[in-house]
């Protein structure tokens, strides 16, 4: 059975009298250990798919099943718990917390986990070492370059060993050289067994993935 199953997912946004269909019946199946890029023009529903996959955007109809769990049937705050235990997010604008150091930013997902502080520090340090920032643990985000901030964001996403790493345009704000380094890092993580789902507009990023899913007007093409 696939790790992720998206079955006939539709998503409509209503604004006043207007209804926009962001997704018009999307079916995607992703196996464990795959590196998937989702591509499409702006407005084709890329980010909506990712937010639906991330358990943050309730689909209008359809089902999302991840590791055997039907995400949107989880009661109460169980969906938040599911995100904490199974998903890692890398955002386009990094979204690091400006008043926390690199290691504190990486420890953020562990703030709600029952674990000793030294164990949290060790896990965060190891995650930062994996992304090549083992020597900049105590830097604040504004003391890091764009590429380094992206790496901190990746370290934060993998610190809790998630089943799936979701990335939204991770190279959107980076120069081409840094983009290549970051993509190589994702590849490296995937080679180590990490499932990666990435939304990107950059076709070159597709070369790092195992498979590319193209979206157009809210449908897989």
């Amino acid at each position: 059975m696939a790790l992720i199953e998206i079955k006939n997912v539709k998503k409509q946004y209503t604004s006043g009298d207007d209804t926009v269909e962001a997704l018009r019946g999307v079916d995607i199946s992703i196996e464990a250990g795959e590196f998937i890029t989702i591509m499409g023009q702006s407005g084709s529903g890329n980010s909506t798919v990712l937010s639906v996959l991330g358990g943050m955007n309730h689909p209008t109809t359809g089902e999302v099943e991840m590791a055997g769990v039907k995400l949107y049937q989880l009661p109460g705050e169980k969906l938040a718990d599911f995100r904490a235990q199974n998903l890692g997010f890398v955002f386009q604008s990094f979204h690091l917390i400006s008043y926390l150091t690199a290691i504190e930013n990486v420890m953020l997902p562990l703030a709600i986990v029952k674990m000793s502080t030294p164990a949290k520090k060790t896990a965060a340090r190891q995650a930062l070492q994996r992304v090549g920032l083992g020597n900049k643990l105590d830097r604040l985000p504004n003391q890091l370059s764009g590429g380094e901030q992206e790496r901190v964001a990746i370290a934060r996403a993998i610190v809790n060993n998630p089943h799936i790493l979701l990335a939204d345009e991770p190279t959107g704000n980076l120069d081409s050289k840094t983009s290549e380094e970051v993509m190589a890092l994702f590849r490296e993580l995937n080679d180590a067994g990490q499932t990666v789902v990435m939304v990107t507009h950059n076709p070159e990023n597709g070369t790092y993935s195992d498979r590319t899913i193209n979206l157009k007007d809210g449908m897989v093409v």
Partner: peptide
Amino acid sequence: TTEIGVFRAIGFRKSH
């Protein structure tokens, strides 16, 4: 807002 969005995305509950 963004910061809180990040907290929620990485699994913080409303109570957190």
